[in-house]
């Protein structure tokens, strides 16, 4: 009986600790119209220590959303506009000669913040991208001989434009894999679009208030960690990721020639973490298959490699994920 958990107790804890979710959502909805999925994905990333890559055509409020999220939390925020002439030192910092002391002073770069907005990440060359991605993975930066730890919460939110590929440096698969979620932003619906016009014509641009401290996020992350995940759900996650690697073993032989590589173990970890965070947002102390399915697209879409055959037939990774979800048995 020691294994039995008190759902009521954990739900109460979540109810108490997740109150800020509503506050953040309200503040964000003041500024961002529609894009509920994007707001939810940003919260998942925030709660599960996962960096987020936002992809969408220009004008869908990607940058504004990240800006707004950062402003709802009273934490350090840096925005780095990625350009082709950006250097790694512009991101991580450098050593500058001090004439008075005759030594070198460390000038920390904009990466030393809680929230980093890497705008149009694919516009900078590979060495700048790797400098950022290294910091994302290791949560530390070395300048000269000294290694500096990043302050928690440390969250990178990058934006990427799927069009205008000329003069860009596409992120390699290994580096894209470091983003926990890749969120694809779509156009708002007619009603939301009309409201966006009204906001802009009125000339009054609402601002989000700061409603949270970094310590609250760290506390909430600890509660998210406690969200119960049954081994049946773990098996479900493993089945989904394995189906992306060996689809023929799951009766999905038709996908074999369309997938060049499937999800890595990092995908399984990210899926589990994101599902827990999603359950937390939905005020649940345990994960159900719905949570896994809700985050599956964002977690897996950039981790499934497509073959030339799939590209020739215009098959997207989302279609492959849909096939997998429709075939793998739900526990």
């Amino acid at each position: 009986m020691s294994e039995v958990i008190d759902i009521r107790q954990i739900n109460e804890l979540i109810e108490k600790e997740s109150a800020f979710v509503d506050l953040i959502t309200i503040e964000m909805n003041k500024v961002i119209v529609g894009q509920q999925h994007m707001v939810e994905s940003l919260l998942i990333g925030l709660l599960s220590k996962g960096h987020i890559l936002l992809e969408g055509v220009p004008g869908l409020a990607k940058t504004l959303a990240i800006n707004t999220l950062a402003s709802t939390i009273s934490a350090d925020f840096s925005r780095i506009q990625f350009t082709p002439d950006l250097l790694p030192a512009d991101v991580v910092g450098t050593q500058i000669y001090n004439q008075k002391t005759g030594g070198f002073d460390v000038r920390k770069g904009p990466i030393f913040s809680n929230f980093i907005l890497a705008d149009e990440i694919n516009r900078a060359p590979a060495k700048v991208q790797s400098a950022l991605l290294e910091a994302m993975q290791e949560k530390q930066v070395t300048i000269g001989d000294v290694t500096y730890k990043m302050e928690e919460p440390f969250l990178v939110m990058a934006t990427m434009n799927p069009i205008e590929q000329e003069g860009t440096y596409p992120l390699p698969e290994a580096q894209v894999d470091r983003f926990m979620l890749k969120v694809v932003i779509t156009y708002p619906n007619k009603k939301d679009e009309a409201q966006i016009i009204r906001h802009n014509l009125a000339g009054e641009f609402p601002k989000a208030n700061s409603v949270l401290k970094p310590a609250d996020i760290l506390k909430a992350r600890e509660v998210v960690r406690q969200v119960y995940m049954d081994e049946k759900i773990e098996k479900y996650i493993v089945d989904i990721v394995f189906a992306s690697r060996s689809p023929e073993e799951y009766g999905l032989g038709k996908l074999k020639d369309l997938i060049s590589f499937g999800g890595s173990p990092r995908a399984s970890i990210a899926l589990a973490k994101a599902a827990k965070a999603y359950a937390f947002i939905k005020r649940r102390g345990y994960v159900i298959p719905e949570d896994v399915r809700a985050v599956c697209n964002d977690v897996l879409r950039h981790r499934i490699g497509l073959t030339y055959e799939a590209e020739a037939e215009n098959i997207t990774s989302e279609e492959i994920i849909a096939d997998i979800l429709n075939t793998v048995e739900v526990p």
Binding site: E3, V4, I5, I7, Y228, M229, D230, K232, I233, G285, Y286, V287, I288, P289, P331
Partner: peptide, 10 residues
């Protein structure tokens, strides 16, 4: 059933 299966609910 979901509660019993996934949340160790009795």
């Amino acid at each position: 059933a979901d509660l019993a299966k996934f949340a160790k609910y009795q």
